[in-house]
């Protein structure tokens, strides 16, 4: 028999899993690492669930946990990545990692573009791609709405440039 906490957790999972997954892919390149991060975020949501007091929206609360976890995770994983990059390039890709269709290539390009952004810009970019409001972005990232607005323009230009290298002469 499921209790209240389990029911709420399952609801959160089904309503937010795709967004959390995309966030993970924006923070770590490797698919397995993205899965580990995804699971770590779910664990933290579970642990904090009893303390959620509805002072903020549930999605803002979830995003705060998700981004804070992703920041620490990517900081820790940097070292492993550095070790991995010391390996010859041909050993770094498994066959399933290669993008096949044009859409796959575009999405890989997008992940790469987001991955190359500084952490704060990465938070803003992924929230922006989820249609989050400036206010929500400010509440999650801890910066002012005005500064979010300044950042948004730069990020939009940067992403469009990276996804349209021919048009922007890159």
């Amino acid at each position: 028999m499921k209790n209240q906490k389990e029911r709420v957790f399952e609801e959160i999972y089904s309503s937010h899993k795709d967004r959390i997954y995309r966030l993970c892919k924006g923070f770590v390149k490797d698919e397995d690492q993205a899965k580990d991060l995804f699971q770590e975020i779910l664990i933290k949501i579970w642990r904090h669930l009893d303390a959620f007091r509805e002072e903020s929206q549930i999605s803002t609360w979830i995003y705060r946990i998700a981004y804070n976890t992703a920041i620490t995770f990517s900081t820790k994983e940097k070292k492993q990545e550095e070790r991995k990059s010391e390996m010859p390039a041909e050993f770094q890709w498994s066959d399933s990692d290669y993008p096949h269709s044009e859409m796959d290539q575009q999405i890989q390009l997008l992940y790469q573009a987001i991955n190359e952004l500084p952490e704060l810009d990465r938070i803003i970019a992924t929230l922006l791609l989820e249609n989050s409001s400036y206010r929500a972005i400010a509440e999650i990232s801890g910066i002012s709405e005005n500064y979010v607005a300044v950042k948004v323009n730069r990020i939009k230009t940067s992403l469009s440039k990276k996804l349209n290298p021919q048009t922007h002469g890159n």
Partner: peptide, 29 residues
């Protein structure tokens, strides 16, 4: 063809998470 920001948003949002065994995770927790 140039990809504008709303195309990028659509591309981004088209990505879905793989289903995971939630009951095993909850049991472990």
């Amino acid at each position: 063809m140039e990809t504008n920001f709303s195309d990028i948003q659509q591309l981004w949002q088209s990505q879905k998470a793989q289903e995971m065994d939630l009951s095993t995770l909850i049991e472990g927790l």
